[in-house]
Write a protein that binds this DNA or RNA. Structure first.
Lengths: 184, 184
DNA sequence: ATACTAAAGCAAAGATATTGCTTTTAGCTC
DNA sequence: GAGCTAAAAGCAATATCTTTGCTTTAGTAT
């Protein structure tokens, strides 16, 4: 169930979808994460709570949907003129983004929401960006996309989600260095 | 807040803690994960709902506590006679355990529960086991414990949590191979 | 335009969460 | 070990959230 598409996606449904998403994001920015409730969101969005329950199911599912939407915006990874430096720059940017309070929150929400449905959003986001970089430099065979996922993305995400530690920029560099073939 | 230790840990408090944990595990085994509620657990544990709310806060926190307890039981990694094979055997066993339906559920519960408090439990479990193996073979310098966490544990967990894919045994082997120094 | 029906609104009913107060009892002191 | 103190459980009333049947609104097709 991606972004909960109604059978009738136009007009009012679309407006309500936007309005509810906006309300969630505004309330999240407001910081009161704890007392975020469906009725509160509904009031802010100018909607009846039952509308939200009927369309999204419950609060976690709604939050997962909002978070997933965030990860669906694919930015273009910075172009630096070489594969190595593109990868390095992206690694830093990605880690910065994901380890920020907002990033961590979105990751959690995506994981918590509907069982497994959206969790791909987060993985997909990283994968899409890595693939973009790889396709930009077809002659560079090493490291492969799966290797980058396993040995750069995975350690970064593991640190953020499980260890709760924010790796230093030097740590990110070390991970990238380890991936790149030795220069001669 | 580990295993929600009351100021008065003996007698009745301990009994209730056990009884509630047991009720949760029984109901989880019963499979009806969806309609698991605090009142239901309370009824099964022979306890008043307000007791659970007062001690654990809410359902996710309780589930996180139960899951964290599971990860606190430290088994001894299998001894195979060499560092390489100990690491390989553990990698397989760990992956097997964590990618099982039960394992995935516990991981989720730990992540969802109290914000960051318990999430270490899961990481701590893996780390403790890797450290045990490392200490068993002090002369083996490579790979280091952090390297194992970054390049074996992290990819396994990333696959399970984000990609929702269960890696094959061959994939686990490949990760271990990649870590071990080249034989001459 | 009109008809058809998905989706929203409304409101009552049902379930869960919170809270003030009372009762029980673990842990301490004598 | 008997008594004291306060932490934690029980109880019950209240507040809040969730679900659901029915009505109304408004996209979409004809």
């Amino acid at each position: 169930m991606a972004t909960k598409t109604p059978v009738r996606p136009g007009g009012r449904s679309a407006r309500i979808q936007q309005s509810v998403h906006l309300a969630v994001n505004e309330l999240l920015d407001g910081g009161n994460r704890e007392d975020l409730t469906v009725p509160l969101i509904a009031a802010r969005a100018g909607v009846t709570p039952s509308t939200i329950y009927r369309r999204w199911g419950d609060l976690p599912a709604l939050l997962a949907d909002v978070a997933a939407q965030y990860f669906e915006t694919d930015e273009v990874p910075q172009e630096t003129g070489a594969f190595d430096s593109d990868l390095r720059a992206w690694g830093h940017q990605f880690h910065e983004e994901m380890s920020s309070p907002t990033g961590v929150q979105y990751i959690r929400d995506v994981l918590v929401g509907d069982q497994g449905g959206h969790s791909g959003a987060c993985a997909g986001y990283a994968l899409a960006q890595v693939e973009q970089i790889a396709q930009r430099w077809p002659q560079a065979k090493e490291p492969s996309v799966p290797e980058i996922m396993d040995h750069l993305v995975a350690p970064l995400m593991y640190g953020i989600v499980f260890a709760g530690n924010r790796l230093s920029a030097a740590d990110v560099d070390a991970l990238v260095d380890r991936l790149l073939p030795p220069e001669d």
